[in-house]
């Protein structure tokens, strides 16, 4: 799927100062090629999450368009956008995002169960749990997990519907070195199978897995060469 970010900006109101708003993301345009693994680096508060959320259709840009196969997803109505997100976008939010009242397995299955009645991906879910190293926790309630375990549940959940794009906002935040490497291997493999992967990360090691590196600086995105 062809993904195009076109003249996108995001401003937030500012309480004090000369102007009454500021740019969290300054005008940005770039294309993400299918099956590539890109990373966005940048300091805290530079606008990385803001940009990622807009690409994921979770935050409406102040101006500009997010095009998937030449269609602006913000022109969709809520139902269309929801279904589109469910099918095509695997999002790993920066904050913890498991549902505490469901088991690990149920959390991972949830995006699939949302629009489908019969269960045909149970085995794939098991496979994802094994890949991320939390298969032993399959039937544990998510409320009882450690931070790193929750993070890996979110990663497996993002993959369950075999989306067109994975958007990871610091997906390795709570993980040790070994698991961080494991997760990047998974993303690398996923990209090789044709899924576009876009990650926000602090891991400079990530560069060695990536096809493309961006740098975010005070809301301005630039490509690192």
């Amino acid at each position: 799927m062809k993904i195009e970010i076109k003249n996108v900006t995001k401003t937030y109101p500012r309480k004090s100062g000369e102007a009454n708003f500021f740019y969290a993301v300054k005008e940005t345009s770039f294309n993400i090629s299918e099956g590539s693994l890109s990373v966005i680096l940048g300091r805290s508060g530079s606008g990385k999450s803001t940009l990622l959320n807009m690409i994921g259709g979770l935050l409406k840009p102040t101006s500009g368009e997010i095009l998937y196969d030449n269609k602006n997803i913000f022109d969709f109505n809520d139902k269309e956008l929801s279904v589109f997100r469910n099918k095509n976008i695997g999002m790993i939010p920066q904050v913890q995002s498991v549902l505490p009242n469901l088991t690990v397995f149920e959390n991972v299955m949830l995006p699939y169960a949302l629009y489908k009645k019969e269960n045909t991906v149970g085995e794939y879910a098991d496979e994802l749990l094994k890949m991320t190293g939390i298969f032993d926790l399959k039937n544990v309630y998510a409320s009882d997990l450690s931070g790193g375990e929750m993070r890996r549940v979110a990663i497996a959940r993002a993959l369950i519907n075999k989306p067109s794009i994975i958007l990871g906002d610091e997906p390795t935040a709570d993980l040790d070195e070994e698991n961080t490497e494991k997760v990047f291997e998974i993303f690398k493999k996923t990209a090789q199978q044709g899924t576009t992967v876009l990650l926000v990360t602090h891991e400079t090691d990530a560069k060695k897995y990536s096809d493309c590196v961006y740098k975010m600086q005070s809301g301005e995105l630039s490509k690192e060469t």
């Binding site: 469910n86 995002s97 549902l99 949302l114 629009y115």
Partner: peptide
Amino acid sequence: KKEFAVLRIIGTSRKM
């Protein structure tokens, strides 16, 4: 509300 936001992230529509 974070729980519900998660549901939205994975593709739950407003109505659902």
